[in-house]
Write a protein that binds this DNA or RNA. Structure first.
Length: 498
RNA sequence: GGCGCCGUAGCCAAGUGGUAAGGCAGAGGUUUGCAAAACCUCCAUUCAGCAGUUCGAAUCUGCUCGGCGCCUCCA
């Protein structure tokens, strides 16, 4: 059984030892996307967070049932579709496709189940029926409202008292009290609707997650996650619905909430703020792992500032790790490790020490409420030790067995965090593919200039060679003269886009 | 008004009672035809401020200042 995993629980506001209901098994429900538009990098942080926790727990040997839903019936979808003159379900389908493309591009692990509201209507109706039967909900003119007063624990997640809440300006007709919320909305002309015991209508915003969680994972989930902005009202209301429908059984044992992306000013990023960057736009010019390391360099619960330097900086971090991975993979040799250490000295010993203790230390950091920032710090220490070893003249011929230990350590990082999944070489190529077009360059153009410079260098015409190099550097290309060849990279300190 | 989070070097960021990880930027050096990359050295006697608890505090308590989120669109 895995070592103790500790997770911050929003419900208790404390880091707690993680104990699922069933030993070895984790039921994970994460609020997914409402599909009315393309995803932006703020959504991606939440999705990468869900991926990180599922991926890590699976890596540690837990049997993870991971459910992440699509909300495809919603006010915004209906409104947007009406604006477009498009059928609501066509619009939703279009954005589900778009979202799935983004998730694939982000390298997100496939959830066990990805339920949709539109195909979960039976469970939704059944759950609302139960709530009405048990006196937790009431019908009024074809709509059904949750009766907040019937659930004394209401507010326990967000730590708010109903009487302290700011009252809405306008009263919604049909509600007994302003804090009551819709479980079922009576159909309006031109809107999609489903048949129900209360007449045609559609589900309210919160019931779908309660219902989909129940349908896929049962009455209790171990971890329920989502963005911090979902704590209230969404998750608070889910608790109310599920616990009332399930006779008071605790709905989620642990609540995890990721921090939001903020702008430099500290204000949050969001569609409604008009400051959102789309995932597609970002991934067109940056590798997905650059975005991932940008998220993971900060603890998942902290706010994360977004600015023009965020991705170039993150790509720099990632490049540093890949450089070390590539250096390690180029070392050869078949001697036994003690012999290699005897030959290469304490720098080799240092790599052995860091690499062999790496998994254990990584797990300790991750088990402590998923401390990815600390885990990455350790990866950089290992990278430096590997690079240092690779500077030895004999390292390339003899360092292989030791480098293998470092590569194994990097593989753990790949599996547990989803970073360094490519080879060093493949990474460099991906960076070129993505960064060349925004710089207005092509491989052919660069190679041509490079060939001219090689000729100049062979003729020892240093001024001409340096002029060509200066030109390339100006354009955003860094030339690297290796002993046996010439390489080139994209300069990360040349920043084009805003 | 209510609930809650945060303030660590020029910048990003770990660290939640035992004497400040890691990355970027910067300075010097090794290497190089010169560079770049890499490596080495240096770079916070100090953690917004004040007071308190303690043998000991960035870590605990109180207050002050500053920033942010939520209070029915939100990842």
């Amino acid at each position: 059984m895995p070592a103790p995993f500790r997770l911050y629980n929003t419900l208790s506001r404390e880091v707690e030892a993680f104990t699922p209901a069933e030993p070895g098994k984790v039921k994970l429900y994460f609020c997914g996307m409402t599909v009315y538009d393309h995803c932006h990098v703020g959504h991606a942080r939440a999705m990468v967070t869900s991926d990180m926790v599922a991926r890590y727990l699976r890596h540690r040997g837990w049997d993870v049932d991971f459910v992440r839903n699509y909300t495809d019936v919603d006010d915004k979808i209906i409104r947007r579709a009406a604006e477009n003159g498009e059928a609501w379900n066509e619009l939703a389908e279009r954005y589900i496709q778009s979202t799935q493309e983004d998730f694939r591009a982000l390298g997100l692990a496939k959830p066990t189940s990805e339920p949709r509201v539109s195909t979960s209507m039976d469970t939704i109706l059944e759950m609302i029926g139960t709530l009405v039967e048990r006196g937790h909900a009431y019908e009024n003119e074809g709509s059904v409202w949750f009766d907040v007063a019937s659930f004394p624990e209401y507010g326990k997640l967000s730590r708010q008292k109903v009487e302290d809440m700011r009252q809405p300006d306008e009263a919604v007709p049909g509600k007994k009290t302003p804090v009551d919320f819709a479980l079922w909305k009576a159909a309006k002309p031109g809107e999609p609707s489903w048949e129900s015991p209360w007449g045609p209508g559609r589900p309210g915003w919160h019931i779908e997650c309660s219902a989909m969680a129940q349908a896929t994972l049962g009455t209790q989930v171990d971890i329920h996650g989502g963005g911090l902005d979902l704590v209230f009202p969404h998750h608070e209301n889910e608790i109310a619905q599920s616990e009332c429908a399930h006779g008071g059984e605790l709905y989620a044992r642990y609540w995890m909430h990721n921090g939001l992306l903020t702008m430099a000013s500290g204000a949050k990023m969001g569609k409604s703020e008009g400051n959102a960057f789309g995932i597609k736009e970002v991934l067109q010019v940056f590798p997905a792992e650059a975005l991932r390391i940008y998220y993971l360099q900060v603890h998942y619960r902290s706010p994360l500032p977004w600015n023009v330097d965020a991705l170039p900086d993150a790509l720099g971090l990632l490049s540093r790790l890949y450089e070390a991975k590539e250096n390690a993979s180029q070392m050869e040799g078949t001697e036994a490790i003690p012999a290699v250490i005897a030959g290469l000295g304490k720098d080799a010993e240092r790599v052995v020490e860091l690499a062999s203790s790496f998994p254990e230390k990584l797990y300790a950091a991750m088990d402590d409420d998923l401390n990815t920032a600390k885990a990455l710090g350790m990866a950089f220490e290992l990278a430096r030790a590997v690079n240092r070893l690779s500077n030895h003249k004999k390292a390339k011929k003899r360092g292989g067995p030791i480098a293998k230990l470092a590569l194994d350590a990097f593989d753990v990082l790949a599996e547990a965090l989803g970073l360094l999944q490519l080879s060093g070489e493949a990474f460099v190529e991906e960076v070129k593919d993505k960064r060349l077009p925004p710089l207005g360059l092509t491989r052919e153009g660069v190679e041509e200039k490079l060939a001219a410079r090689v000729a100049a260098r062979e003729a020892k015409e240093w001024d001409r060679a340096d002029a060509i190099r200066a030109e390339l550097e100006e354009a955003g290309i860094q030339v690297m003269d290796r002993p046996d060849r010439v390489e080139w990279r994209i300069r990360l300190d040349v920043r084009e886009e805003a």
